[in-house]
Design a protein around this nucleic acid. Structure first.
Length: 278
DNA sequence: CTCAGTGTTCAGTG
DNA sequence: TCACTGAACACTGA
């Protein structure tokens, strides 16, 4: 689930449930992996009684700002999501088709109850997600180490080129590098390259100015479009590679009938259309 | 039973 | 130091 658009949607869910309310109950799972070494007790003490004043996001990290306390950062890993009490479970675990109506849901790592009676749960089945506390999230790791957020920022052509620097890595690897652009994950990287008509194997130093600019604008376009549709895959444009790239299906084709090829790049499955991408 | 997986990190190499 | 690679992490579901 969780690349920038899904995380942005998660932020909006958290915002709607939390901001302007006081936390009257906080259940924190005793999970040292997801809590990144902090004790559940410390997290609970931070949250309990706190007034939620704002939410924010950078790349795949989002956080809840509390009055007079550290902010609570969330990273979804491969399987994180927020659920709210009474909502349909829209954001289920990776491919869990089974509708989980229990409350709190399975794999809840953090459950917050607010003074208006609303509740939100952070669920994370594979434990690659993280919950962290930070006084000044943007100034501290991990967020201060990240590159630009494509939803907030469109670098100029010159800025984009200087961010690439003297690297010679494959385009796919560049896009997955969170210190380059924060929030781009595996499917977005493939979609961006598909729409920019660039071969994912190409190294960044081989691009001319026009190709670099196609890349720059494609990153923004894919991210903005996915966010505009609330990360709801069914509403992504029918022309997108996205709809045809899953499962490494032998003989997979785009809507236009062009063959999709699957290779491994940067350690990830990469889907691309050789007939189109150069 | 095996394996892939929408992510990140760290050890090792050149 | 930098850039890059690949394994490891942890767990579910196909």
């Amino acid at each position: 689930m969780p690349e920038l658009p899904e995380v942005e949607y998660g932020r909006q869910v958290l915002h709607g449930a939390a901001v302007g309310r006081r936390i009257v109950q906080a259940d924190v799972a005793d999970d040292p992996i997801v809590l990144d070494g902090i004790s559940a007790h410390v997290v609970r003490q931070t949250l309990l009684g706190a007034q939620a004043v704002q939410t924010d996001r950078h790349g795949k990290h989002l956080w809840l700002v509390l009055a007079d306390r550290p902010a609570v950062l969330f990273h979804f890993g491969m399987t994180g999501a927020f659920r709210t009490l009474g909502d349909e479970p829209l954001q289920l675990e990776t491919s869990g088709r089974r509708t989980d109506r229990s409350w709190p849901p399975r794999f809840t790592k953090l459950r917050l109850v607010f003074d208006d009676g609303g509740e939100i749960a952070f669920v994370n089945s594979r434990r690659l997600g993280r919950v962290r506390l930070r006084d000044d999230p943007r100034a501290e790791p991990p967020i201060c180490t990240l590159g630009y957020d494509p939803l907030r920022t469109l670098p100029s052509a010159e800025g984009f080129t200087s961010r690439i620097g003297r690297r010679r890595t494959a385009l796919k690897v560049l896009l997955l590098d969170q210190t380059f652009a924060a929030g781009v994950g595996n499917w977005i990287a493939d979609e961006v390259l598909y729409q920019a008509r660039l071969d994912p194997h190409r190294t960044v130093d081989t691009l001319d100015a026009a190709q670099r600019d196609r890349l720059r604008l494609s990153v923004r376009h894919v991210v903005k479009t996915a966010v505009r549709h609330n990360a709801d895959k069914d509403r992504f444009p029918a022309s997108w590679l996205f709809h045809h790239r899953w499962g490494k299906v032998e003989g997979a084709r785009t809507a236009a009938g062009q063959a999709i090829e699957f290779v491994t790049l940067g350690g990830r499955t990469t889907a691309w259309v050789p007939a189109l991408q150069r």
